[in-house]
């Protein structure tokens, strides 16, 4: 008798792949799915359930279903991929210096002079004294400094 195609294995593997490949181009773009990657974790969970079901069929009813070897390979790849994802997101992404020397609330903000994207130098003092576009007050009410890791 010809053994049947083990659809669950493939569906599970594809879900895991989707979870691995979708974070950076899709879910990292939205704070709700970026701060905690719950959509990707759900995809992994769904994929794992299907892979386990498929493996159970492949090994439990080998005369009915295919996929003992390929299923094992896909499961191993999935475990490695999910492990890599978790390591990156929950370990590597959190390897930041604790920055104990950063100025605290109530302290004076250190001044700086830095060129903007048009090579025009800007100081913090200028920034704080600059008029706010469209505002009734003559001066800015404050400044928000956002430090980025950079663009690469």
């Amino acid at each position: 008798m010809k053994r049947r195609w083990n659809f669950w294995l493939w569906a599970g593997f594809l879900l895991v792949l989707a979870g691995l490949l979708s974070y950076v181009p899709v879910f990292a773009l939205f704070p709700l799915t970026r701060d905690f990657p719950w959509v990707n974790l759900l995809l992994f969970a769904g994929g794992a359930v299907l892979l386990l079901g498929g493996l159970k069929r492949a090994f439990g009813q080998p005369d009915l279903y295919r996929g003992k070897i390929l299923g094992s390979i896909m499961a191993a790849l999935s475990i490695a991929g999910i492990g890599f994802f978790m390591y990156g997101l929950f370990y590597v992404a959190r390897q930041l210096p604790d920055s104990a020397a950063a100025p605290r609330v109530g302290q004076k903000a250190p001044d700086f002079t830095l060129p903007d994207q048009n090579d025009k130098p800007l100081t913090l003092a200028e920034l704080l004294a600059s008029p706010l576009a469209g505002a009734a007050t003559a001066r800015a009410n404050g400044a928000l400094l956002i430090f980025y890791r950079g663009h690469w």
Partner: peptide
């Protein structure tokens, strides 16, 4: 490089709020 961080500074130059994230994704 810089670690990600945000500072809110009032018009007198005093820091009023600091945000030092624990993860580059947040």
């Amino acid at each position: 490089i810089a670690r990600p961080a945000e500072f809110l500074i009032d018009s007198k130059g005093t820091i009023r709020w600091v945000n030092l994230t624990g993860s580059v994704t947040v």
